[in-house]
Amino acid sequence: MTLNWKDLASGLVLILVGLLYGYVTLETLPLGSVLEMGPGSFPIVLCSLLVAIGTIICASSLFGARESEFGRVPWRAVFMLSISILLFGTFLRQLGMFPSVFASVFIAAAAEPGFRPLPAAVIALGLAVLCSLIFLKGIGLPVPLFGSFFPA
């Protein structure tokens, strides 16, 4: 018997989400009746379906014919891109458009194993200029060019 780990995990994910959302639904949302469906009735149907489908996938994973590769996870990319995006979302207002784009692009570029700081800085600078022109000059987004971190 070969166990298909990938399918087992997939099924478990669906079951977990179904149970979590199902629990939240039962705790917080009235179900109502067929005549007047409450805010909880449609979600509870979906949660039940998710648990059922997850169970089927788990069951079939026990008889999984082939195991497919999970492949490697580019941890470096996951980490760097997360920092780059979090930084942008959190500090855009304080940093302003130009420094935000520069920093985010530079950090994102480090996601690749073949990262070289100097070319990355050039790309980041170019994009910072470009984005500032397009989005501030061109479209007029309500974001400062340089934010409050940089006293004028």
């Binding site: 891109l81 780059s84 995006i85 979090l86 942008f88 979302g89 959190t90 855009l92 207002r93 458009m97 784009v101 985010s104 692009v105 530079f106 994102a108 570029a109 996601a111 690749e112 073949g114 990262f115 070319p119 990355a120 790309i123 980041a124 994009l127 984005c131 989005f135 987004l141 309500p142 974001v143």
Partner: peptide, 26 residues
């Protein structure tokens, strides 16, 4: 290596500007 950092920047700006909020970026 040039393309994907640019995509990240455009993605972030695009998402941010829909609702002017960093939350959407998260």
């Amino acid at each position: 290596s040039v393309l994907f950092p640019a995509i990240i920047a455009f993605c972030c700006i695009g998402v941010y500007s829909v609702g002017n909020s960093g939350f959407d970026v998260y």
